[in-house]
């Protein structure tokens, strides 16, 4: 199957390793991944701030980018951005009087899946260890971000996948359904309330004794991580895609989580593309990681 990846602006610019992890999972299942070059943002930041007119070109750009290339389905490693495509983009187009764009936006949204939704519903993955080779020998907890939970109705898809990862122990998060307090521009327009909300979230994560919280939305994680650091908490977050992409041969190490860059092993020239020294180095580091 040909799968278009919608990286989302925040993952593209701040968490490129999450987009890469998504690609690795899909390629491992034998799919062709394409990256529509014109893609930008889903428009959620503008819409949620009330800037509907300014959101229109962002919506149009997304629709054009995801109609210009050929693919079977699209995927994004973010429940919030996928929800925005279906719930907000047609609304923006209609408010601005562009019914044609609204219909196109609905068509693109209908073909775009959140990662766990795509894996479970379309690709039939329910056992990450057996079907993806996922390996992550750590205790973690999981925060279901609001839009994946309530707008997409992801339900237990993410936790089904996580709990089937080899050697992973999933601990239930108290008050898991509470918002972390991010909320886009809410986070800086109402910093005190947002801060109180993330305090509660961090305390709940700490109470699980895991110190590591998985999730499906990098924006919430940027907020939770930053707040944990500010409060001197040891709590860290990790994206679901990174855990699923982690294998015995190429495991995600805990000390790699804080660095947002694409891991060196993926950034250097690879073994079979060239017989040069870079290739040898990458091969040995992959072996070494094992």
């Amino acid at each position: 199957m040909k799968i278009a990846i919608f990286a989302t602006c925040i993952v593209d610019a701040m968490y490129p390793k999450v987009a890469l992890a998504t690609v690795r999972i899909l390629e491992r299942l034998g799919h062709d991944v394409v990256f529509p070059a014109g893609q930008g943002c889903c428009s959620q930041m503008h819409v949620n701030s009330g800037y509907i007119d300014e959101a229109l070109p962002v919506v149009r750009n997304h629709v054009e980018a995801f109609t210009a290339v050929d693919y079977d389905v699209a995927v994004a490693p973010s429940g919030s951005c996928v929800a925005s495509l279906g719930h907000q983009q047609p609304m923006v187009a209609r408010k601005c009087g562009d019914e044609g764009l609204a219909r196109q936006a609905e068509e693109v949204a209908g073909r775009t899946y959140e990662l766990s939704e795509l894996l479970v519903d379309v690709l039939g993955v329910t056992d990450a260890e057996k079907q993806l080779g996922s390996y992550f020998p750590h205790r973690i907890t999981y925060h279901p971000s609001c839009h994946g939970l309530r707008l997409l109705g992801l339900g237990d898809r993410p936790t089904t996948l996580l709990s089937s990862v080899e050697d992973l122990e999933l601990v239930e998060l108290p008050d898991a359904q509470e918002c972390c307090g991010f909320g886009g521009t809410f986070s800086f327009k109402n910093p005190d309330v947002s801060g109180a909300m993330v305090d509660a979230k961090i305390k709940n994560i700490e109470s699980t004794g895991t110190g590591l919280c998985a999730g499906g939305d990098s924006s919430c994680q940027l907020h939770m991580n930053g707040a944990a650091r500010r409060r001197g908490s040891e709590v860290r977050t990790v994206h679901l895609a990174e855990i699923l992409a982690s294998t015995r041969a190429n495991p995600l190490e805990l000390d790699q989580i804080a660095d947002l860059s694409i891991p060196r092993v993926h950034a250097t020239i690879t073994p079979s593309s060239a017989a040069g020294p870079g290739g040898a180095q990458a091969a040995s580091s992959a072996g070494g990681a094992r």
Partner: peptide, 30 residues
């Protein structure tokens, strides 16, 4: 309320332009 992390060395988009085709290597490595 929050710190801002050290940004990554490059974006996914710009990385993909150079490395997008390396599917086989990625699968092999994993």
């Amino acid at each position: 309320e929050r710190d801002i992390p050290v940004p990554p060395s490059q974006s996914f988009r710009n990385w993909w332009r150079k490395h997008g085709e390396e599917t086989e290597q990625r699968v092999a490595r994993d």
